[in-house]
Write a protein that binds this DNA or RNA. Structure first.
Length: 431
RNA sequence: GUGGUGGUAGCUCAACCGGCUAGAGCGCUGGAUUGUGGCUCCAGAGGUUGCGGGUUCAAAUCCCGCCCAUCACACCA
């Protein structure tokens, strides 16, 4: 039996690796989502909102050798005994939706939302984290890979990020990839003695993964490893060349990194990452993606190619902080109502203003005039509307400009207040 | 998952080698001739020193366990 912990002394807090995003920060999150959405729609992508959990099977098709799938999934049995999992990424769900709904090709979708992986948390690595991404199904044109890469590049740039590099690679088609993997495995086995213990194990399971190792001990072996680009079949080499040409056509700077192997095993041909130089930590990949040929088929659909990327929103914000860009603040209300005759006037006046489309707030609990003015100031409102006994008797409200100390306070008849405010606010905007 | 570092008010931090009632700044609340914010000044509230146990006359400080954060690795966005 589980022991019930004494509630005393144990403060309830959010679970490990997840966090609250408070109002001071949410403005930026909202703007990010809106900007990303606009960027995608502009390029003909439609939004996909898929469920946050799927049958476990959907994610197992990503390849059970990947740790994301084998070790990090939040899986559970539902009340009917079905094995479910919170989505650890979106591509599998998108592919599942694609198969389920048979849309017209090419199917261009974008998404935004939380993903879940039970990893050990760190800065830029959370158990619930947000990704924004796109996927396109049904086209194998290499220029589509370029469009996808360019869209992410353009979007990251639009946030104001400058210290970015784009790394690209090609693993080739399945034949090239398998051939290379085999050769690399042979090479690593030869020099196994020089590798770290962990990498020796990795080499057995998935040789490509060793290229990702950051251990100093492995670097010499990795540097001497054969390049995957030398193993591309003719058509795969042509695909990659077209991608590079396309990037040059668009004047998008890129580095070819033959060591770039991505974590999910479904990628074939193009793989890429957007890396931030502004982040010192190991979590400096702001996003990544690539082309995948086998995923839809693995999920039981026809062999349909796909390409896409995912951006790590939490990490992008860390990079933004580091570069001091894309800083968004909560927008303040326009009007603050100060009522020192009991609060009833504020109640009806705020309602009236809001119905008229004017944003406003007020104080509570009959605080003193001074206190209410202080709150009004703090609220960031442009104007305060003051109702005291004098104003109430005269059926007016006092309008005070909080931004400038010079404009004299002015009494406005109660029934003209909405028009008067719309006037003032319009003037504010035109100034 | 493995290893390292850390956790003191809402926030940022102080408290030498264990020793007085655990402090400061910011923020918050109230006040400075009784109906006017910002600047200034005065005052106040706010802490089981992450949680639990141990050592000691005495623990924020030393030891152990747990929790959380953070860094590296592993992995990934």
């Amino acid at each position: 039996m589980n022991q019930i912990r004494s509630p005393k002394g144990v403060q309830i807090r959010s679970p490990r690796g997840v966090r609250d995003i408070l109002p001071a920060e949410t403005a930026r999150w909202r703007r990010f989502e809106e900007d990303f959405s606009a960027c995608c729609k502009q390029a003909g992508y439609g939004e996909l909102r898929s469920p946050m959990f799927e049958e476990l099977e959907v994610f197992l098709r990503l390849g059970e050798e990947t740790e994301v799938v084998s070790k990090e999934m939040y899986d559970f049995l539902d009340k009917d005994g079905r094995h479910m999992a919170l989505r650890p990424e979106m591509t599998a769900s998108a592919a599942r939706a694609f198969i389920q709904h048979s849309p017209v090709l090419p199917w261009k979708i974008y998404y935004y939302g939380p993903q879940f992986r039970s990893e050990r948390p760190q800065a830029g690595r959370y158990r619930q984290f947000s990704q924004a991404g796109i996927e396109v199904f049904g086209v194998s044109d290499p220029y589509l890979d370029v469009e996808v890469i360019a869209l992410g590049w353009q979007f990251l740039g639009s946030l104001g990020l400058k210290q970015l590099t784009l790394q690209v690679n090609s693993l080739g088609d399945t034949a090239s990839r398998n051939n290379y993997s085999e050769q690399l495995g042979r090479y690593l086995a030869q020099r196994a003695g020089e590798l770290s213990e962990a990498s020796q194990e990795t080499a057995q399971v998935n040789p490509l993964r060793v290229l990702d190792s950051k251990r100093d001990q492995d670097q010499a072996v990795i540097a001497g490893a054969p390049s995957c680009l030398d193993f591309l079949e003719v058509s795969a080499a042509a695909h990659f060349e077209a991608v590079c040409n396309g990037l040059e056509k668009l004047r998008i700077p890129y580095q070819v990194n033959p060591r770039l192997v991505r974590g999910l095993d479904y990628y074939t041909h193009t793989a890429f990452e957007y890396v931030s130089q502004a982040l010192k930590s190991a979590q400096n990949a702001l996003g990544g993606g690539g082309h995948y040929d086998g995923l839809v088929e693995a999920l039981g659909g026809k062999p349909v190619p796909g390409v896409g990327f995912a951006l790590g929103v939490d990490r992008i914000f860390l990079a933004c902080d580091s570069e001091q860009v894309f800083i968004s603040e909560q927008s303040p209300v326009e009007i603050f109502v100060v009522d020192i005759v009991g609060g009833g006037e504020a109640l009806s006046l705020t309602q009236q203003l809001r119905e008229a489309g004017i944003s406003c707030d007020r104080a509570w609990e009959s605080r003193s005039l001074k206190a209410q003015m202080k709150i009004a100031d703090r609220s960031g409102a442009k104007f305060a509307l003051i109702i005291g006994s004098n104003e109430q008797a005269a059926n007016v409200v006092a309008l005070k400009d909080l931004r400038s100390g010079e404009v004299p306070q002015e009494d406005i008849p109660r029934d003209e207040i909405v028009l008067a405010l719309k006037d003032r606010l319009a003037m504010e905007i035109s100034n």
